[in-house]
Design a protein around this nucleic acid. Sequence first.
RNA 1: GCGCCCGUGGCUCAGCUGGACAGAGCGUCUGACUACGGAUCAGAAGGUCGGGGGUUCGAAUCCCUCCGGGCGCACCA
Length: 555
Amino acid sequence: MAYAPQDPVRAALWDGLVQAIGHQQWPIPEAMTLTPPPQEEQGDYATNAALLLARELRQPPMEIAQRLATALDRRSLGLASVEVAPPGFINLRLLPQTFTSALPGVLAKGEAYGQVDLGQGERINVEFVSANPTGDLHVGHARWAAVGDSLCNLLAFAGYDVTREYYINDAGRQIDLMADSLEARYRQLLGQSAEIPPDGYHGEDLRALAQELIDRQGDVLLAEDPHVRHDFFKAWGLQRKMAVIREDLEALGVHFDVWFSERSLYEGKEVEAALDQLRRRGALYEQDQAVWLRTTAYGDDKDRVVIKSDGSYTYFAPDIAYHRNKLERGYDRLIDIFGADHHGYVPRLRAAIAALGYDAQRLEVLIGQVVRLFQDGQEVKMSKRTGRLVTLRELTELVGKESARYFLTMRSINTALDFDLDLARTQSNANPVYYVQYAHARIASLLRQAEQSGETFHASQADWSLLGEGNALAVVKAVLTYPDVIAEAARARAPHRLNAYLYELAGVFHAFYNQNRILGQALPLTQARLGLSILVGQILRSGLRILGITAPEQM
RNA sequence: GCGCCCGUGGCUCAGCUGGACAGAGCGUCUGACUACGGAUCAGAAGGUCGGGGGUUCGAAUCCCUCCGGGCGCACCA
């Protein structure tokens, strides 16, 4: 933990610890932690400060721990006990009121609770999905859509100025292949014999598009000049495919701020400008009639072609221009989310940025592993070539947006995601989405009930100190952790941690609710329990919103 | 062959900028409301963290090596 905790209680303790170390004229260890110890009996928090200082000071850790323990101001920190444990941990136990007295502050923050200033307004551009408009979005894209969008929400909540961007590959060979494939479908549907090009697209979606075209204007295109016809298929197909992509993403609750056209880079001469910049910096050379970028100078395995021997650009060339464009737009940091099948592309991209003269550290690439679909215990195989694949749209329609978003973000992106279609569809305790949502619905119901019985919540009537033990205290602690979860998840670019936290929060709340009658108690107690429930509801709403999942009032 | 990711209880995973006897969920077994929603809760069994070395006061976490799985190694995108 290289930075102070965000949790109000832990933060105060952290400051006290830092002060105590300072008093001894000792340095604050970079890797100092303040976390719950493994055993509950050991206290509420433990720090490894003495262990770390021991190395630096060359003194026995137990002695250092002892001195720190005595130096801590127990009263002002709300400590109940401070113990030193071998090999040099300092275990801290807080008075229950130290926790509960933080609750009014949390309540006062309202929906803003959990916001942290990790980003300090840093401008960050997150590019994700960016699927070619040549076919439907599949489940892999769905994962990046959900993860990317949630990550953006998370970063924004953590104090970054975030832009969500989709790069449209509307130039180049693939789009021509799409046009030719669409034309082939068009001809086939009109009874002509036509072949989809060898590397073309065989998906059903293009057949449907062709049919749509015929329904609208019949076979008039057949009479057109081939070039005009090709351009039409290209432009129209692109426009239609992008519309569908937007709709599909929308259905998953994913919105982009910028839809960036690759073609605009050509039109604005930016590809040439980028290559000129590289040339001026001496990073380009010619060989075998092709133009190469010396990416090996910046850590890549081999140099890469930017202009092919036939004079056309590789995919890489406009992509260099694209990243240059993003940097020139003033973003402090760029995040690209790629599928694992593109990870080999990262070194050259990074090299290109360095070759252009920018700090390659400004580019962060998140590599995500594949999604495997399971149904009836069997893997559902996907294949783009045969056109047999489960689309993002099918997935959303099958399991619903809520389930889809939760399941797609629940795992670390480093792990292949096994998506159990049956589980995602069940409305039972096996499905974690419902577990979390149910907690929220339950709280909403509780508040409705309170309204009816005239026990409306008034913060001034609550005696928070009554929440200082058992299940209630567990909920209090979970509530206080939220800002740190946000900070940690944002820092690690790991939205799945939020899923885990919300599940845990829902869990401790369910336990609390089950064991404690909330309404109809003595006023200060009912009010305190009601207040705690409100806080949990507030956090669930906040967290679920980040994940793009609704927090239902009833289910 | 080289590179990246993964290998944690029956299953799916968390934890991995090192911290004290490894955590969840599902599944299995045993229990709990004639008061706020049982889509809930309480409890039990189950793992020498793929194998082997090393670094360290301390390793699931770092390094080396081996084994297994996924992905990638284009003048395709």
